[in-house]
């Protein structure tokens, strides 16, 4: 194309039209070469400038540069558009199927009881509790005697104890409560502890009964510990666990190691007016608790006149079951990965 300053507009129109019409990057490259590179239109114009009248040179320079910029920009835009179009061809052409499965990322899993135990531990730790552990094969002394359950106490029968010897010296702990005594023996009051762990009751297996299950025990010893604080503690904990304001209701309950002793009902987390979980009562029986019996404090070497204490114990399996609507307790200890990997 001839370089002619009188035809700058025509040159631009023609150039832009070529850019516009370019069907692929090769065509675009051709335009680029023809206009912008060595020996191209813009170069030819610039070469003409010295030949112009001095007063026209400035104008001529500007015109040539404007032409260059216009073509350059148009080519840039067109190139982007062509690239975008070529990518879309791949997508629209059907080679990519968003519903095809990806190669699976294998993963491991933590047992749901571990997960809930951690959650419970974290909540209580944030409330100033220390987490303790205790033996599963326990001395009768800690599991019963020190907990105000002497030999021949009827409560022993209700607990369906596994005995590890005929002298009834060793048991598989029926509760996490023995660690209360172990805590009192080692810690200086005031203190607050929780004890998660596995416990055992000699019960035949079915969907709602296990001989091995998990509890968390809580014990708070202090100078003015009272029932109101126990209620407050349970409420705060439950509100955290269920992630919604959860009301509790205490009613009398008998456990030899507390006095007064309470059963705790919680406001059904699943309904407002009654459902299957709460048998239409809006209350769900949840755990046992109470003010630690003076005999128990004494057995742990704590002056029951100076210190008072509350304790609570709750089932962790039940918590997992409630939250996940699991109906068969046996799955927890069954070791079937098809169940476990869901958590």
């Amino acid at each position: 194309m001839d370089a002619n300053f009188d035809q700058l507009d025509e040159l631009r129109e023609a150039g832009l039209a070529r850019v516009h019409a370019a069907a692929d990057s090769d065509a675009l490259r051709l335009v680029e070469r023809e206009f912008l590179e060595k020996g191209g239109v813009v170069a030819a114009l610039l070469a003409e400038i010295p030949k112009l009248a001095p007063e026209k040179r400035r104008e001529g320079g500007q015109g040539a540069n404007q032409l260059k910029t216009a073509i350059q920009n148009a080519i840039g835009e067109k190139r982007e558009a062509l690239l975008e179009a070529s990518l879309m061809v791949e997508a629209g052409g059907g080679s990519f199927d968003p519903t095809l499965p990806a190669a699976p990322m294998e993963r491991g899993s933590l047992h749901p009881i571990t997960q809930v135990t951690r959650e419970v531990e974290e909540i209580f730790q944030s409330m100033g509790y220390t987490v303790l552990d205790g033996p599963e094969v326990e001395l009768d002394f800690y599991n019963f005697q020190a907990l105000n359950i002497p030999a021949d106490h009827p409560a022993r029968e209700h607990q369906d104890t596994f005995w590890c010897d005929h002298e009834q010296n060793l048991v598989l702990r029926t509760q996490t409560s023995p660690v209360q005594i172990r805590a009192m023996e080692t810690l200086e009051p005031p203190f607050r502890v929780i004890v998660p762990g596995r416990v055992f009751r000699n019960e035949a297996l079915d969907a709602t009964h296990e001989h091995t299950f998990h509890q968390v025990e809580g014990l708070v010893v202090g100078e003015d510990i009272n029932v109101g604080q126990l209620i407050g503690t349970l409420k705060s904990f439950l509100t955290e666990v269920f992630q919604k304001e959860t009301d509790v209701r205490l009613r009398p309950g008998f456990f030899p190691f507390v006095e007064p002793g309470f059963e705790v009902d919680i406001r059904c987390p699943f309904c407002d007016t009654g459902c299957k979980v709460c048998s239409d009562t809006t209350w769900v029986e949840y755990c046992g608790c109470g003010m630690v019996h003076p005999n128990v404090l004494r057995a742990g070497g704590i002056d029951s006149e100076r210190w008072s204490a509350f304790a609570f114990g709750m089932g962790l399996d039940r918590l997992v079951m409630m939250r996940n609507k699991i109906d068969d307790l046996r799955q927890f200890m069954g070791g079937d990965l098809r169940f476990l990997e869901q958590f």
Binding site: V220, Q229, R251, P260
Partner: peptide, 20 residues
């Protein structure tokens, strides 16, 4: 104390904060 508590009404006992 338990006798009095349960007749007074356990549900009437107000929750209290346990200071950390």
């Amino acid at each position: 104390i338990e006798e009095v508590g349960r007749l007074y009404g356990l549900t009437r006992i107000e929750e209290q904060a346990l200071v950390v």
